[in-house]
Design a protein around this nucleic acid. Structure first.
Lengths: 170, 170
DNA sequence: AGCCTTTCATTAGGACACGAATGAAAAAAG
DNA sequence: CTTTTTTCATTCGTGTCCTAATGAAAGGCT
């Protein structure tokens, strides 16, 4: 049940392993805690909020985007959600099967597919979203308001960096 | 290529949709930026570092844990990596197929399985890890050292919250 | 008009993700 | 010592996730 290795043990083990490797431990700490927090928070939200409504994480995020934009093209969803179009195809198939969204072919460009919410989909989001937000409050409740702002800023900055570097190649 | 919707548009759309719903926007900002940053950073690291060596994200994390601990039980790996034992079974199968780790049955308790690195696995980590860390530096380079510390602290706190709430049920 | 290139969404194939079910082994209870 | 109960890792079924390949449709070009 409890962790098999204490934090101190891990620290020691890691530092001897990385000795003479010129590692930036501070940057490593930020990034590893970023993934730990995101993973943990996601698992929590899936378990406590989403699973009760038979919704997957990505399903929820896609639903959110469609909810915000009334009618939106699939390629826009993919970009906004940060997933590949291939993945989105599958997720949308599930959401449509469950009666939460509808796909329609665009009239002006028959390659495009437009997605919109069904009545059930809207009802579900109206119910889930406040629940979801309450748990977001719970997750961040130990941080002062000023720290919440600073953290959001830092995270935005990390996002920017990872995208800037990516587009640098073109 | 560019985003279909500007930040201002989204802001407006969201605030009208959520009007009268009593949403904590600050908490929402922290959490959404947490996932955005984690996703973006992970994609970046997969593309720029891991994919060149034919390694998946989870494969790398598992490899890291095994590297640190020489020989470690699978249940410990699962806990440390934050994944289910079912998932780990599959990942270990892949890693063993690629010759990076070895599984052995425990002598003292035949239910347990012990995992350790192969020579190739060690060589790979010795090569990849410094690369990986350089990109971690890149991702956090826009943050002052004091901000890096504060951010890591805030993220640790979020992790703690999401785990505390989970165990509260028992 | 007819090709050529680009831009779409989807499918195909492989890996990862989970909970539930399975079967083996150890520990607890009688 | 035998019967439960618990604790392991794995397999199964389903969904998510990626890249690459596919096929349809639109836009450019001559």
């Amino acid at each position: 049940m409890t962790a098999a290795h204490t934090l101190e043990e891990t620290e020691r083990q890691v530092s001897t392993l990385l000795k003479g490797m010129n590692i930036d431990f501070k940057a490593m700490g930020v990034v590893s805690n970023l993934f730990r927090a995101a993973n943990s928070a996601r698992n929590h939200l899936e378990r406590e909020v989403l699973s009760k409504h038979g919704l997957s994480w990505t399903g929820f995020v896609v639903l959110w985007v469609v909810w915000v934009w009334e009618s939106i093209e699939t390629r826009e969803i993919a970009e906004e959600v940060g997933t590949s179009k291939a993945t989105l195809s599958g997720v949308l198939k599930t959401l449509e099967r469950d009666g939460l969204v509808i796909k329609k072919q665009s009239k002006t460009d028959r390659r495009l597919v437009l997605v919109s919410m069904t009545k059930d989909g809207k009802k579900m989001m109206k119910k889930i979203f406040p629940e979801f937000n309450q748990h977001e409050v719970l997750l961040t409740s130990s941080l002062k308001l000023s720290t919440q702002e600073a953290t959001a800023d830092a995270l935005r900055s990390i996002t920017l960096n990872s995208q800037k570097v990516r587009t640098k190649k073109f």
